[in-house]
Nucleic acid binder design. Structure first.
Lengths: 351, 351
DNA sequence: CTGTTAGCGCGTTCAG
DNA sequence: CTGAACGCGCTAACAG
């Protein structure tokens, strides 16, 4: 029932070699012959077996997409952008996720073996790898492009994380804030090229630029999720009760922080201002001010880069995407009252 | 450099057939031989070429995952759950998305050709297909499992959509509401087995059960996203200004509805109550009352079903997942004022 | 339990 | 521009 290449060859009155050439659009085929072959193939519903084609050609027309999560804003948008761009070029996307166990530190590892001979290129989404993991992945011999993170000389699509953090912090400084807390990623997040590290650095630099010392009591870890952001803001206000603004490294943590501030009976932005990074779809729900980025476009750009590299081009080592300040209602001037006078006791909210 | 099966065979002093058997854990291999082969393969970094294995065996150990979106709550969670379950069984996941153009009606179509000889089974996530599409997909001859939607005799993992909608509506009725609007999917959403249709049906039934006629002015379309939910609630209140509660078919639309109510200067729940379906992570931000479902578990369950079908078992035709009412602060008793007396003019909010 | 022998269904030389 | 022949790397059926 499933037509093979020689069914098509026979029906079109040509050899299998000509069928193969015609269907793949190679130049050295008579136009009339090509059209006839294509018509016959269409009628027979012939589609070349990818396995056989890969085995014979050595190419898989498949890209491996490695991501620690799928259900988070940045990741899902990058994946969707990349998938559509790749499919438009006739490439398939193989999805690989990895377990992450926060309690065990960096408990995920990328096992390159599963990708061997499966793909033509690799996209790594927002997963700061350690050097040995990068080397192991490179050992596979496929082009690799990273999104949202870059290091060890890998081609990368990312933000100017330091600049973005500085812009966010300056926005708060410009409103008059002096005690500005920062919610970063995880404590064991020390990769020299990871966004949370760069963003923390940018926050510090903007603070110092304004003559303020970003003491360690001002930095807490939110683990890049809503629950983490919520917990971390409790910790932050316990250590630094005079904080009047918070810069979170992601919108999900920023929204968690807003929940945490509600727990503490603090109003946003009257008591504490909050700014995030991302441009999360749900940000408008709570009026979240943020540094917005186009995650889907970054995914598409990364897809084009791997494809270029597969085609033999040497693309730029880095593409830096812009962020834009989106002002909403979660940031405002600091409260006029003296620090400490307005602090309330923690209150658990229902639901 | 990349070791092949005969490199391993030579190094281990056996034939390639034995290597193949040993590495795949087939029964008829001496334990000592198997261990030796595995050790040698390990040392040489040998991994069987999937293309060659597929060509020879006819199996791909790959599941095609078809989804219209990746960056929406239900879809990303189902995909993540399915991916992890499949990878745990050594199966790869090929991701397929489809363009959807709302203005052109159902502008997406599933082209079965791209899946031919690529996969061993198919997972369709929340995409109500038309009968001809289903038949075309079945024509491929692979096991198919749908998540979040089912019809035409396909094996399905889903909710009791009608019951869930009735429970949500009864919650509102129990609070004293009588004029309850409903935000469903799209106007062209008429597939007899699609969740929005069933949920609308459940809403109607619960209303009639309470002796209330669910007039057409009470139903609007939210297109399953936040923007759609927001717009639809404007329309709803224009047609039925005395509405005191809204049941939305998804949390994303419910959150959009809350934004839309804010546009209209209406308070939630003092003026209008809102309930959704899903259990979206961000629901707590706005105190959204919802009928929560476990999307990731449904993805994992669907994965197990396809795998069972591939293994030759005949699994149940349907697995129905429960939903649970999560009460937060977006629902409450209807306002005491006479309908119409409290209506405010639309006000555009900043941001 | 193990080796030998055929393909699996294509892409790709190399002649013509 | 086209066809014939070979082989990609592995699994499966059959012997032994």
């Amino acid at each position: 029932m499933a037509a093979g290449i020689d069914d098509v060859a026979r029906a079109a009155g040509v050899s299998t070699a000509t069928v193969s050439r015609a269907l793949r659009g190679l130049p050295n085929v008579n136009a009339a012959t090509r059209d006839r072959v294509r018509l016959v193939a269409e009628q027979l519903g012939y589609v070349a077996s990818p396995s056989a084609a890969s085995l014979a050609s050595g190419r898989t027309r498949t890209i491996g997409l490695i991501s620690p999560f799928i259900n988070r804003w940045f990741f899902s948008n990058v994946i969707e952008g990349a998938e559509r761009a790749l499919r438009a070029q006739g490439f398939d996307v193989l999805l690989y996720t990895f377990e992450i166990d926060r309690s065990a530190g960096r408990a995920y590892r990328v096992d390159p073996a599963v990708l061997r001979r499966r793909v033509d290129g690799i996209l790594v989404v927002g997963l700061p790898l350690e050097e040995d993991e990068v080397r192991a992945l490179q050992g596979l011999g496929y082009p690799i492009v990273c999104v949202g993170w870059g290091g060890y000389g890998i081609t990368t699509v990312r933000l100017d994380d330091r600049g973005t953090a500085m812009a966010a912090t300056r926005h708060l400084l410009g409103l008059g804030h002096r005690r500005i807390g920062h919610i970063s990623g995880a404590p064991d997040d020390v990769s020299p090229w990871s966004p949370p590290v760069d963003r923390a650095e940018g926050w510090r630099e903007a603070m110092r630029e304004a003559g303020i010392e970003p003491g360690p009591e001002l930095e807490v870890h939110g683990h890049f999720d809503t629950a983490g952001g919520r917990e971390s803001v409790h910790e932050l206000l316990a250590h630094a009760p005079d904080v009047t603004a918070v810069f979170a490294s992601s919108d999900e943590m920023a929204m968690g922080a807003i929940l945490g501030l509600r727990d503490l009976n603090l109003r946003v932005p009257e008591d504490v201002s909050v700014i995030g990074v991302d441009g999360h779809d749900m940000g408008e729900l709570v009026g979240l001010t943020t540094m917005a980025q186009a995650a889907d476009e970054q995914g598409a750009a990364a897809a084009r880069l791997v494809l270029d590299m597969i085609a033999g081009f040497s693309p730029p080592k880095e593409i830096v995407y812009p962020t834009e300040l989106v002002r909403r209602t979660s940031t405002g001037p600091p409260p006029p009252l003296a620090p400490g006078a307005r602090r309330a006791r923690p209150v658990r909210r229902a639901g």
